[in-house]
Design a protein around this nucleic acid. Structure first.
Lengths: 327, 327
DNA sequence: CTGTTAGCGCGTTCAT
DNA sequence: ATGAACGCGCTAACAG
């Protein structure tokens, strides 16, 4: 395919004039401009973006990491990122990490070798040192809280989320409340547990170890919880659950076993996955799509701000209670 | 950051030798190779991928289009693509089209300006002419049947899918069977309807127009179907539904209105979205993830096969019946 | 086994 | 308002 030199030759001008036309620069004779555009059209010419990237040092692509694509939580975030990115003419490179630090590093590497202009990490398994190191090669935003010095984040306030959920259940009269969370010692889990214990202590309830379920990741895990609940001494009357799909598992299994929801067991989910709406699950959550939007905004600002002064910024989303039929 | 020339200078060799080391080419003195690698390490050097791309004419990136990211069907396809792509060291550029031909064209354009090496279209709204035109700039695979001359596809046999569903319902004794599909006149819908009418005719049933529901896209649309079903003269005893989430809407609303599933109304869904498993919906489907895998394989072969001879290939996935509790 | 050199295609001073 | 010429960083053909 034709290149810029050929266009210049056909138009009888220099490559720089063609380049000016291509990039809408001023100071080009209107007649020449029209002539050049006509030839570009005739020749079916387009710029080679790799050459542009090499020359400008920008790619107009940002990376997005997530553990797995096929998950509604992450899909919602991406949706928010995608809408905002499209408006600013950025493309998205979506990279699955499988929660594997090595795979994640290979994506951080894209920042170093200039394949992307910035990176949004919907979730991360790399260490803070690694993150800080790569932050030197381009802006990074995480959609989780992180304790690095230089990487900004936009994240859900999981402490507050659980707080609201607990307060709501307690106002409904529940005292024996259990919880369900994912990775045992993650950042998020720690905040959730803190809210849980604080709230129970405030009404002088000592939580039984039998009420807590960790490493709940799949719908099946949710179902299994109900089985275990059956054999507990003092069965909780309510569960607060980090994800709606786990809550869905609990609800389905409960109904199968004749445990009435919410009469025998109330359930509160804590994200905005659409399964919650479908199954009418009471939920306290903030919008993941909005989180994606904010993440792109922060990233975009950092891409264009010249000095990478590395002032860390943290944006927290406020959760809201949506009452439905499981409480 | 350092470039290849600088490394060459520090090592006292030429850039080509460094390039050879970088690309694992043979014919490099082992001692020099080690020395060069050491310097690369010290200098924290990495290649600028844009320069590599410009020079090689390949980017090792493929594009993936889909109407919207936040949809389990498309997420499943991407999952299949992503896994296979990772194995071959390809990155994914995921592009949302919103079913808008103009946005889609801007993505096809990426093929022309060399930003991607190939394109998988999970769904498309462009015309065949447009597709054929851009197929000249790089390989394209669609995950829907298409009637172009040059664009290969891997797709679900929707005719067979509905056939299996209908046969199954009929074997269960149903005669008054309704259907629910999405876009009225899409390729897929036509095949589904053909199977529907053929099967009913084979048992001498004349379907009532009241049994057919088109333009069903959301869960709410599924719920609305039940409302309309209530006022029909001869209410169908079974529904065959193109998507599980529509089926889910039907089931939820039916249960709310006291219509028993499957006793009063049997429901068969026709995809592999996980909501089907959760709600125990009987389904006839093929694996979307597998479709993604195949799509990448076909694309990859076409990227590396030199002559773009344009032999069109079509791969059909065979659907399977999964009996659950809604029939 | 190694180096020289000519591209790859474009952006961008700088001089005019 | 325009063009010559250099630089972006790397690969690969060719010569040795």
């Amino acid at each position: 395919m034709a290149n810029i030199r050929e266009i210049a030759k056909l138009a009888g001008v220099s490559v720089s004039t063609v380049s000016r036309v291509l990039n809408n620069h001023p100071y080009v004779n209107e007649k020449k401009r029209a002539e050049i555009l006509k030839i570009i059209e005739e020749q079916n010419y387009v710029q080679n973006s790799n050459a542009v990237h090499l020359s400008t040092g920008k790619t107009m692509v940002i990376g997005v990491t997530l553990p797995l694509v096929n998950n509604q939580y992450y899909s919602s975030i991406i949706e928010g990122i995608a809408a905002e990115a499209a408006q600013h003419h950025y493309k998205l490179m979506v990279c699955q990490t499988n929660n594997n630090p090595e795979q994640e590093r290979s994506i951080l590497h894209l920042l170093k070798n200039k394949k992307i202009d910035g990176l949004i990490m919907c979730s991360r398994s790399s260490s803070c040192e690694t993150l800080n190191e790569y932050a030197g090669y381009g802006p990074i935003i995480t959609c989780e809280a992180n304790d690095t010095t230089s990487v900004s984040s936009v994240h859900i306030d999981h402490y507050k989320t659980f707080l609201i959920g607990m307060e709501y259940l307690m106002k409904k009269g529940h005292r024996r409340i259990g919880y369900c969370i994912g990775r045992k010692n993650s950042f998020n889990s720690q905040h959730r547990k803190r809210a849980y214990y604080e709230k129970l202590r405030s009404i002088d309830v000592t939580p039984s170890p039998e009420w807590s379920f960790e490493e709940c990741l799949t719908i099946q895990d949710g179902k299994d919880v109900v089985g275990k609940l059956l054999h507990t001494e003092e069965r909780p009357t309510a569960m607060i659950v980090s994800c709606n799909h786990i809550a869905a598992g609990i609800i389905k299994e409960a109904s199968r076993l004749g445990i009435r929801v919410p009469e025998d067991l109330a359930v509160v989910g804590c994200d905005d996955q659409p399964i919650g709406e479908l199954l009418e699950i009471t939920t306290v959550s903030s919008s993941s799509t909005l989180m994606g939007k904010y993440a792109f905004e922060m990233l975009h600002e950092r891409i264009w701000r010249q000095q990478l002064d590395g002032k860390k910024e943290e944006k927290e989303l406020t959760p809201e209670l949506v009452e439905r039929l499981t409480t």
